Amino acid sequence: MRTWHPEGHRTGHIGWLRAAVLGANDGIVSTASLILGVAAAHGTRNSVLIAGVAGLVAGAMSMAAGEYVSVHSQADTEKSDLARERRELRTNIQGERKELAAIYVDRGLDPALAQQVADQLMAHDALGAHARDELGISEIVTARPIQAAFASAGSFVSGAALPLIVVAIAPAASLIFSVSATSLVFLALLGALAARVGGAPIAQGALRVTFWGVLAMGITAGVGVLFGTVV
């Protein structure tokens, strides 16, 4: 007798991977850009470090709050839809059976078989069947606000700490070059890692993240140079 074993599909990583990559990427880009902007405006190492640490703390709190609110809104929508399904299952069970069977017919099943599948699934877990096949809500994609908030904040801090470490140890004369070069390396590695975990082309993932990092840091450094010249 064969035993079914769940496969380790990459979609199981979507929730935490999205928050972690977004947080780390923002941590590196925003902190490195802030550091470069202050350094380009002829700031001292201490002022650069202070600005970087302030950016790390503010960014981590912003990422956590934003991710929590965003994902919580998704969770509220899911709860509302599930509550509606519960009411419909109590008041119109036959209509819900037909609705579920129609979904399976649209997916290619014979009407008789679709009705049989719908009956058996609803006998086992009616709400779960409708949540999964009608609403698209499953254990994999269910919104988890607190998990997303902590993942975003933690990954932001991890990313933001990297350019700050470079500022602390790099020679003052080569501060801008050191932060720029190492941040781009960090971004490329992050993009490659995210692509590897997600099953996407590694080179494409690294290039995409690095390009936007270069753009952000270049614009911020240019603003710093302009501000430092004017002021």
Rank of each mutant, 00 (worst) to 15 (best):
A173T: 12
P201L: 05
A194G: 10
Q94S: 14
L89Y: 02
L164I: 09
G222I: 02
Y68N: 07
R208M: 09
L187M: 05
L175S: 01
I176T: 14
V230W: 09
S152D: 03
T229K: 02
L113S: 07
K98R: 14
S80D: 14
G23W: 01
L49Q: 01
V141K: 12
S152R: 00
A192P: 13
G59V: 02
V225F: 00
G213P: 07
W212M: 08
V141C: 14
F211I: 13
A32L: 03
I176V: 14
T44D: 14
I35M: 08
I103C: 11
R208Y: 02
E99M: 09
Q74K: 10
G43W: 05
Q204M: 11
G95F: 00
L121C: 05
S183R: 04
S73Q: 00
A54I: 00
A20M: 07
G23L: 03
V29A: 14
L184E: 13
A153V: 11
V209N: 06
H9L: 14
G128W: 00
L56T: 07
H42Y: 04
V21A: 10
D76Y: 05
A114E: 08
W16L: 15
I93D: 07
G59W: 01
A20L: 09
D119F: 11
T77Q: 15
L193M: 14
L164V: 12
G59M: 03
N46A: 12
G27M: 05
A24T: 01
F211M: 14
V38N: 15
A129N: 06
S62C: 05
E78N: 09
I165C: 10
E99C: 12
A54G: 04
G43P: 06
L207I: 13
S183T: 10
A160Y: 02
V209C: 04
F186Y: 12
N92A: 08
R196H: 11
I140A: 13
F186C: 15
A40V: 01
G199F: 02
D26Y: 09
I35R: 04
P163L: 09
Q204D: 15
F177E: 10
V197F: 08
I93C: 10
Q116R: 12
S80R: 15
L109P: 02
R2F: 07
A83R: 15
G154M: 00
A153D: 10
D26A: 12
A40K: 01
V166E: 06
V69I: 11
R45Q: 13
L89D: 04
R107D: 15
L189P: 03
M61R: 03
V48W: 02
I146D: 13
G198V: 06
S47G: 01
G108K: 04
Y68W: 12
D119I: 12
A170D: 09
